[in-house]
Amino acid sequence: MPTLAADLPSAAEPLLRVTGLSTGYGKVGVLRGVDLTIKVGEVVALLGPNGAGKTTLLRAISGLLPSQGSVSFAGRDLAGAAPRETVQAGLAHVIEGHRVFTQQSVVDNLLLAAYDLPRGERSARVEEALGYFPEIAEKRHQRAVALSGGQQQMLAVAQGLVQRPRLLMLDEPSAGLSPVLVDRVFDVVRKLRESGTAVLLVEQLIEKALALADRVYALARGSIVLEASTAETDLPHRLEHAYFASAPVAAE
């Protein structure tokens, strides 16, 4: 979206800067001092074994989970912001498990994502988001419960796009999808990059994620254990090493 260029931060300043972020559930610490940056229009993959805290990190960034540390986005301080404020700041979070509102139609699901937009703009934005996914545009008046899992995932991504975010965070968009549908979703991510939207992608399909992303972070045991450009060679091996072999138990 070139029209946004005017108020983009300068090239030196990243779009999202997370510093020293720690959080957890109750007394259980999950993340310990995570640092992470995303530049404008960059696709970043966030990888890591189960239970490493990937989903938790996305929740903390979007304000769904309270956290300590600083989160600045497009020059704004978003630490402690409610999810609604982060969405309005241009940071959309598509949560895991394609949790769309099953009893409402496709269009109504998208209109809900446009809740805070001026009344006149809503349907145009909904059409724009549907433009990315002709498959569900055909079913616009069906209830979401009638969609397949893959189509529900497309709807969830489309919900994220309604706000025209500067950064779209996708949590395991491929889970439960057939390979063809995964490619469809990833194609959309490529299109978004071309239009200048940054994407933070949590993904289980490592090879596909690496093929798509510009940069990669690996999270293990609540901390970032690897940060690399996907152009680097030997990345899969380094990733595996980062997952398994760096713990004190194995080191002894």
Partner: peptide
Amino acid sequence: EHHADLIFD
């Protein structure tokens, strides 16, 4: 367990 290192250990 999720901690692969503990499992393998």
